[in-house]
């Protein structure tokens, strides 16, 4: 069967997956079209409710890259702080890492 990939413990067929996605997607759209019909475009109904505060402009509400995953990096700051420190940008350190890894491999291969 074309598209059938043996993966080691099972099989993968992307064509079947695509057909399934199309079928499920069609069912979801069909269900959606039978849903609530009281939605009125371009009315207050479409605005988000922000505890009674006015909605800020879309341009001002765009979250920039620096703020995305702030919580993730903050929670992992003890992992990130030394990791960032290691990335000095200094070519001497780059060379040092090569020598260090070479020395470790020498020891590992030597004793094995």
């Amino acid at each position: 069967m074309i598209g059938l990939l043996e993966t080691g413990s099972g099989y993968w067929n992307a064509i079947t997956w695509v057909i399934m996605v199309i079928a499920v997607g069609a069912a979801v759209i069909w269900l959606r079209n039978h849903g609530e019909d009281k939605y009125k475009k371009d009315t207050d109904q479409t605005k988000p409710f922000l505890s009674g505060n006015p909605e800020i402009s879309k341009e001002d509400s765009h979250v920039s890259a620096s703020h995305i995953y702030w919580g993730f990096t903050e929670a992992l700051k003890h992992y990130y702080q030394p990791l960032i420190k290691l990335h000095t940008g200094n070519i001497n350190d780059y060379s040092g890492w090569i020598v260090l890894v070479m020395a470790i491999i020498f020891i590992v291969v030597g004793v094995s």
């Binding site: 990335h87 940008g89 780059y94 090569i98 070479m102 491999i105 291969v109």
Partner: peptide, 27 residues
């Protein structure tokens, strides 16, 4: 031969961008 192997494994891994010899890659 072992020494040659170690040299080749280390520097070819580095040229492939393997950590911790990867720092040239983003630059």
């Amino acid at each position: 031969d072992k020494i040659a192997l170690i040299l080749l494994v280390t520097v070819l891994s580095m040229k492939a961008g393997s950590v911790p010899m990867h720092m040239w890659t983003p630059d």
